[in-house]
Design a protein around this nucleic acid. Structure first.
Length: 858
RNA sequence: GGGUUUAUAGCUCAGCUGGUUAGAGCGUUACCUUCACACGGUAGAGGUCAGCAGUUCGAUCCUGCUUAAACCCACCA
């Protein structure tokens, strides 16, 4: 028989475990032998194939893995499906970056050659990610891995696109979109991050034609003045009414602009006079539509100025052009002032460049129509439940006001839009299959990455094949677990497509978690250098420690401040379990105890504590309150099982009565095994390892099922006796400590108890008090003693001052409590209105306190 | 402007639909190299539950306001 090491050594424990689980198909769903089990399904939020997984991924996947393992132990046929996301923009940017280092350029290479480079990249990173999944101990069904850009997915995407297109829910239109001038693509609204930037507010003179008067117009983006088509005032703004219909000179290019009235303008903002640049601002665009203004684009794809601007500026970058123009206007005497301001500026989520609102022809999904269906379901009893519930509101409110979704991207890496234009006739066709390249030209754009990941809950289960085993058995998903940061990106869109194509929400429940931050609550970032690499934690402390520390120190929906402190705490805890197990396994000595005919009161006490703990843990696991569940487990294992029970069994194990010894062994063994099963979802490696040392058990802890309450009832007397002994030992230790006596200093004790009680408690008191003399009395006749539920204890000492203090304090506390009770019980309102049970409890408490106090005063 | 969250021990956080002597870990003090564990043990110290009102027999918990912090959405040129 192999021996357990004296400390938990993670590398040795983890070695070969994942392979062992894989070989035995423990991660696989939908196996024949599990067909009669109820299904439970989740998918991983597919990580981007752009690089290493970070701590956020580790948190996300650990939570899901814990839930899946828990469900599996509880008799479910669990599908935990792995997948990766092609991450259009992000991956293309990385591949381009890599090519640039090699001196290559995508335009020179051409689309096909570039895509083959991208696929190489994908293959490389996908294999990295798979290794990392294993390192994280994720029990996903690796035989069912999916990728958002594989061929099967392309068919689904095309079908979904065409269906929506035919229904008129996808359309092409020319509108102001968010343009990323670095990546040279359109972005959706959610891909734009607004942040408060320092900027300048420039005030210019717009002279009237007669050059006698001017209007003051302020702008933050002077370079857009080349696209100005009008100057706008509010029709109720008396200051400017007289100018309506007149013309002013654009100081940027000397063109005449008509002064028009539109109620969009806020008279109280700035000067109340606004310039209108229809092709560079969404609000100006709307005004222009109302007034039939021309829409002149003034920028190229890279946000340099185009030929619609004076030749001096053509080709200049927007910010250089801005400075140049301001200089030039200043030289002409038309600059009034420049104000420093803080304003919200949109940045690209990927390139971080300043987003340029720009007129552009793009593809859109009509969200309002689709969102309504989801809202309808969310108001019905078929709604998806959110944990914590407040996210349901956030989810719903977004649906209420979401704008159309810009889904086309000017990239190559992604699902190409299945729309073709007849080269001769110009007729536009959406087709499920590619059309003849001679006759048709396919739209060169690809779809937003989220367009495909939105289909994941059903597409990954082989939809549209509705007869597919996976789809039939596992859709809708039982639970979706993800961070609150991608509710809008992903959860909303999954709901929208899920409902449109399946008529039900694609997941029954959603559990939202927070983000991982550093110990001071700051975001982890490269620039701050405060990031923690999960794989370094695994290397140093082990996967179980990472998993335990990530999943148990947080509250659902709130951010977790992660620190080495938490890592070490987790390591210490797991080491504690390791050692307790080592101790128990040593006692068991390869003979599985089977009978419990003579349980001691401590055995019964720990069993009742275990049953309570189990019930609390289950309650919280079922609400996905992992931290809460783990804290019940921690308290039980550390304080009750290890610190107390394990110590107390040292008495019963030495008994000459074999039944008593066997019963203690039985209790130790049974609880150890059950505790391992409860801990297993959190820390699978160490639990599987310890389990392998248990005699006569199954091949793997994976073949066990979740613990049920241990069917041995403890009476109130057993529990009180256990608590009395615990308290007595604590009192003695406290006495020694406060008197600066060493813990094993001899002491003489008198105990007032019945013969029966005394015989039960004596061996415990003796062993843990190191008493050299204990005498049982019918009545303690001393000044200083301690009152316990089952007996009284007198510590004999030459210096009783500390005992006196202690007793005084105890009596004081009792008196405080008693007066609280008295106040409550004499309160007429309380007696009239409080629930009867509460009143009874309070009376009982009062009686007990009073009795205890009397015992001291007698 | 709209919305959400947070405020509990020196630090990081629990407190499970209102009644507890308000808890844990780290840190800290004293003691212990006791035969599972120094990645340990024992015993302590440490809290006006941000503030003010209200509801209630009773509020850390519910409501309102105030203060402080974080986040999300929308956005004014």
């Amino acid at each position: 028989m192999k021996e357990m090491k004296p400390a938990f050594e993670h590398k040795e424990v983890e070695k070969g475990k994942v392979d062992f689980w894989l070989e035995n198909h423990y991660f696989e769903a939908n196996l024949k032998e599990n067909q009669d089990k109820p299904p439970f399904s989740m998918i991983i939020p597919p990580p981007n194939v752009t690089g290493k997984l970070h701590l956020g991924h580790a948190l996300d996947t650990t939570i899901i893995d814990i839930i899946c393992r828990y469900k599996k132990l509880n008799g479910y046929d669990v599908l935990f499906l792995p997948a990766m996301d092609h991450a259009g923009i992000a991956t293309q940017a990385k591949v381009e970056e890599k090519l640039a280092k090699e001196g290559k350029n995508k335009y020179e290479m051409g689309r096909d050659a570039f895509l083959s480079e991208a696929w190489k990249w994908k293959d490389e990173y996908a294999s990295h990610i798979r290794k990392q999944w294993h390192a994280l101990g994720l029990s996903m069904d690796y035989t069912k891995e999916r990728f958002t850009l594989d061929e099967k997915m392309n068919k689904v995407v095309t079908l979904v696109f065409k269906t929506l297109y035919d229904k008129g829910l996808i359309y092409r239109g020319e509108r102001i979109i968010n343009w990323d001038p670095v990546l040279k693509t359109a972005l959706s609204d959610v891909e734009v991050i607004y942040q408060e930037d320092k900027g300048k507010f420039y005030y210019f003179k717009y002279w009237l034609e007669d050059k006698k008067e001017y209007l003051t117009v302020a702008t933050t983006r002077p370079e857009t003045m080349f696209g100005d088509q009008a100057v706008v005032i509010n029709s109720k703004d008396k200051r400017y009414l007289k100018y309506i219909g007149k013309k002013v000179i654009n100081p940027a290019n000397n063109q005449l602009l008509e002064i028009i009235a539109d109620d969009y303008v806020d008279p109280s903002f700035g000067t109340g006079v606004m310039k209108c640049t229809p092709a560079s601002d969404p609000n100006d665009f709307e005004i222009a539509k109302r007034h039939n203004l021309k829409m002149v684009k003034i920028m190229n794809e890279d946000a340099s100025l185009n030929e619609n601007c004076p030749s001096k500026y053509v080709g200049l970058d927007r910010f250089k052009a801005r400075d140049q123009l301001v200089e030039d206007i200043k030289d002409n005497g038309n600059l009034i002032k420049i104000e420093e301001i803080l304003h919200n500026v949109g940045h690209s989520e990927r390139s971080h460049s300043v987003v340029e609102p720009m007129l552009s022809k793009q593809w859109f999904v009509k969200m309002s129509v689709l969102a309504k269906e989801v809202m309808k379901i969310q108001k019905s009893k078929n709604k998806t439940t959110f944990f914590p519930s407040r996210f349901s509101k956030i989810f719903y409110q977004w649906l209420e006001k979401t704008n159309d979704w810009c889904i086309s991207r000017q990239l190559w890496w992604g699902h190409q839009i299945p729309v073709y234009t007849n080269k001769k006739t110009g007729k536009v066709v959406c087709s499920l299959t590619p059309l003849d390249k001679e006759k048709y030209e396919q739209d060169s754009d690809v779809l937003d990455t989220w367009f495909s990941s939105a289909l994941a809950p059903f597409a990954f289960l082989n939809w549209p094949d509705k007869n597919s085993q996976l789809y039939k058995r596992f859709f809708p998903l039982s639970l979706m677990s993800t961070g609150y940061d991608i509710i809008f990106f992903w959860v909303e869109r999954m709901a929208i497509d899920g409902v449109e194509f399946n008529s039900v929400m694609p997941f029954k429940e959603v559990a939202i978690h927070g983000l991982v931050r550093d110990e001071k609550g700051r975001k982890m970032s490269k620039t701050l250098g405060n990031g923690i690499d999960p794989f370094q934690v695994i290397d140093e402390y082990g996967c179980d420690v990472l998993r335990y520390s990530l999943s148990t120190y947080g509250t659902p929906g709130l951010d977790i401040n992660y620190s080495t402190n938490k890592i070490k705490d987790s390591r210490n805890f797991l080491n504690k379990i390791w050692n307790a197990s080592r101790y128990i396994i040593g006692i068991i000595n390869n003979n599985k105890p089977v009978s419990a005919t003579k349980l001691s009161f401590f055995d019964k006490w720990i069993i009742s504590r275990f049953n309570d703990t189990l019930s609390n843990i289950k309650k919280n696991m079922n609400k996905y309150e992992l931290g809460q569940a783990a804290s019940y487990l921690y308290k039980f294992i550390y304080d009750e099982f290890c610190s107390q029970y394990l110590e107390y069994t040292k008495v019963s194990l030495q008994s000459e009565n074999k039944e008593i010894v066997e019963s203690a062994k039985y209790t130790l063994y049974t609880i150890l095994k059950d505790v391992l099963l409860i801990l297993f979802p959190f820390a699978p490696f160490i639990c599987e390892e310890i389990y392998s040392y248990l005699p006569d058990e199954k091949k793997s802890i994976y073949e066990e099922s979740y613990p049920t309450p241990i069917k041995i009832s403890a009476s109130k007397n057993d529990v009180e006796l256990a608590l009395s002994v615990s308290d007595a030992i604590k009192e003695i230790r406290n006495f020694k400590s406060t008197n600066l006596l060493s813990p094993n200093a001899p002491i003489s004790l008198n105990i007032e108890a019945s013969e029966k009680v005394y015989s039960q408690i004596f061996p415990y008191i003796q062993r843990f008090s190191f008493a050299d003399k204990i005498i049982r009395l019918d009545k303690i006749d001393a000044k200083h003693f301690v009152v316990l539920p089952c007996f009284k204890l007198e510590m004999i000492s030459s210096d009783t001052s500390k005992l006196e203090e202690r007793k005084k304090k105890t009596i004081e506390n009792l008196n405080n409590e008693i007066s609280k009770c008295e106040n409550l019980l004499s309160n007429k309102g309380f007696l009239a209105k409080a629930p009867k049970q509460k009143i009874e409890e309070e009376k009982a408490k009062y009686a007990k306190l009073k009795e205890e106090l009397n015992s001291y005063l007698k």
